[in-house]
């Protein structure tokens, strides 16, 4: 399974590559931890219905997931928050992660309503993106009484941890995922394992072609 991503945005660089195709080579504990991510997403338990809607729109923006199939990021984050699986620290000027999520999602929804007369999930994708860019651009200035950069850090940390733990995301970036007990035998520049797939467009340096939304 591959996620929808146009070649212009980095899609189809590793044709035919599938990390899960190699899962017979993974140890059982790892199979258990990883393959469950491909199953039915956990039910939403932490977010209220409104929070879920705002969070879903936020994650779709942060991770550019605008059509199915999607990595179920909102369910994965909700599950962590329901189980209080935090990173083991919080900034002194933010509440603990669960409460920080509730407050920041409400604040984002409020921004949309004040600026556009509709909530965050209801405004256009472009409007959502510019609302987020406004938070990002505040840097260390305050946003609804919170340091904007720390809110941004909270959102992006949870989003990246969920999305890049999913085998479909690994396929898109050429990463084979678990590597025990097989390991690697071909170390060094341009030396691939038989199950790795060479980049079909090695000249697509994103730093050189920066642009587009985001």
């Amino acid at each position: 399974m591959s996620l929808p991503l146009s070649p212009r945005d980095g899609g189809e660089r590793y044709p035919g590559f599938s990390s899960v195709d190699e899962s017979d080579h993974w140890d059982r504990a790892t199979q258990g931890a990883v393959l469950v991510r491909l199953g039915l997403p956990p039910d939403i338990r932490f977010f209220t219905a409104r929070e879920e809607a705002v969070a879903r729109a936020l994650f779709d923006q942060l991770l550019d997931q605008h059509s199915d199939p999607r990595v179920p990021v909102v369910n994965m984050v909700d599950s962590r928050l329901a189980e209080a699986e935090t990173d083991g620290w919080r900034y002194a000027d933010l509440p603990e992660d669960g409460q920080a999520w509730r407050e920041t999602l409400a604040a984002l929804d409020q921004d949309a309503t004040e600026r556009h007369g509709q909530g965050f999930p209801e405004v256009t994708l472009d409007q959502q993106a510019s609302l987020l860019r406004a938070v990002q651009d505040l840097g260390y200035a305050k946003w609804h009484g919170m340091t904007a950069a720390r809110v941004w850090s909270l959102w992006t940390r949870y989003a990246c941890t969920a999305f890049y733990s999913h085998p479909w995301a690994w396929d898109e970036i050429g990463f084979p995922g678990p590597a025990y007990p097989r390991g690697y035998k071909n170390l060094g520049l341009d030396r691939l394992e038989p199950f790795e797939v060479r980049d079909a467009r090695p000249a697509q340096d994103p730093a050189a072609n920066a642009g587009g939304d985001g």
């Binding site: 991503l5 942060l62 340096d205 994103p206 985001g214």
Partner: peptide
């Protein structure tokens, strides 16, 4: 500062 489409584009370049 990258997110959205730009993040995915950068990430697809991971092996480099």
């Amino acid at each position: 500062g990258h997110w959205g489409a730009e993040l995915r584009r950068y990430m697809s370049d991971y092996p480099h």
